[in-house]
Computed example of a mutant assay.
Amino acid sequence: MTPSPTRKHLSEFAVNLYSARWLMIPSWQIGTDGTMDPKYAEISENCHIYLICRRPGFSYDPFSFVYEDGKIKGDLVYKAAGVPHKIPFEREFALYDGAVEVVLSPYPHREIHTLDQNGEMVRYLPATALGIGLGIHVAERSLGDLEVLYVGQAYAEGKRTAIDRLKSHSTLQKILATVQYNMPDDEIFVLTFEYAPYRIISMFDGMAKNPIKGEVDEKRFISIQNNPLTKHQQICLIEAGLIRYFQPEYNKIYKESFPASDQGILSACYELDFSALAVEINTDELDFSLYSKTVRAKQHHIAQFDLINPRERLSFFLLENENAGPVIRADVISPSR
């Protein structure tokens, strides 16, 4: 009979990484030469992780669209599983900068254009932007669900932003081509996330039997405080954790293997004796949810990992039931090796 795992130390420590500010950018804007608002540019320049996601795309119904009395009216159109849906809208729409006319862009009618007296475009309003501004994704929850297709690092020692990297990103081009062919009614978004400096979460097991404690245990905590994880190490942990959690279709590494004791990105965690990792990502600010083929749609996700084998040693997330032995939580991912 295999002996039950025991608590090695009185205290256990976990690395907690959580998202802060974020941006949601339609993929078609990635390759344009437009200038980003300074407020959003600052966020973009400080983002650490990006997600490539998809959802149904919006267009304007050319048969119902009108501009009269300073208002635009009509229907936003989208398809879900090939079935068309229409959502009526009406809003004030003033003309600026010499614009004298309002028209729809050519098929598939993704934008409203304002034109000057020479027929030159002055401004444009994408159907997607109008839909988000009207909160349609809040009223119709399926439109607020974004499928995570790829997770990547947006930070390269401060030298290139996520937008810069994606302009020549082969995976993004592959995803765009595939979605255009297989899901022509959908559109791709890039979500970039800034992560706050990591937190250390501690847990003390007062029920543990003969754990290491006292001065030896205190020195572990002091060592953790005196040897902080680098920014690069934190970003690598976030990327790997989100890939393993969402298992996006277009990622290859870490989908099944993370965490593992022989992975270099975890070496600092093992040296400091962290026994767990929690990576959070939150999109509730704009009422969008993230999901994948293996994870249901939620606005706040917490990917939880045991970094030590729960069958060999009680870990941060592992609780001991006096009668039935250790209780392994189904929502915590154990090491692959």
Rank of each mutant, 00 (worst) to 15 (best):
A156P: 15
E249A: 09
L191R: 02
A177I: 03
R54D: 15
E120S: 12
T192H: 08
K159C: 09
D185P: 07
S59W: 01
S170W: 10
D262K: 03
R199H: 14
T2V: 09
S105R: 12
G135I: 05
Q299S: 12
S44A: 12
M1P: 12
F221N: 02
N182Y: 11
F58L: 12
E312A: 04
T294D: 15
L10R: 12
N210P: 04
L237T: 10
A81N: 14
N227G: 03
K86N: 04
H137E: 08
F63Q: 12
I52M: 06
T35D: 05
K231S: 06
L277N: 02
F65D: 02
R244L: 09
A260W: 01
Y96R: 09
E285V: 15
A297P: 06
E218K: 00
L318A: 11
L266Y: 01
G31I: 06
K255L: 11
D217C: 00
F13R: 10
Q234T: 11
D164R: 01
L286H: 13
S292E: 02
D331I: 05
G74C: 05
K298M: 10
S257Q: 09
E285K: 08
Q153I: 13
H48F: 03
G144Y: 01
L307D: 13
V122P: 00
L229K: 09
Y96L: 10
K213E: 11
T171S: 05
P184L: 10
A99V: 06
S59D: 04
S27C: 07
E140D: 10
C269S: 05
Y181L: 13
N251D: 10
G131T: 02
Y40Q: 14
N226A: 15
G135A: 09
G57L: 01
A81H: 15
K209P: 04
I25S: 03
F58T: 14
G131F: 00
K252F: 08
I49A: 04
R329E: 08
T230K: 10
N46A: 11
E140K: 14
E42P: 01
L277A: 02
S105F: 04
M36F: 09
A330I: 04
H113M: 07
N282E: 12
H48I: 05
E194I: 06
L143Y: 00
P38N: 07
K79R: 15
S4P: 14
C47L: 05
F246I: 07
T161Q: 03
P26W: 00
T114S: 04
Q225T: 09
N210L: 10
L229R: 09
G133N: 14
S4A: 04
K252L: 11
H300F: 13
L319N: 14
I87F: 07
L307Q: 02
P228Q: 15
V332L: 07
T161D: 09
Y78P: 00
K167A: 05
R337H: 13
Q304P: 02
L95R: 00
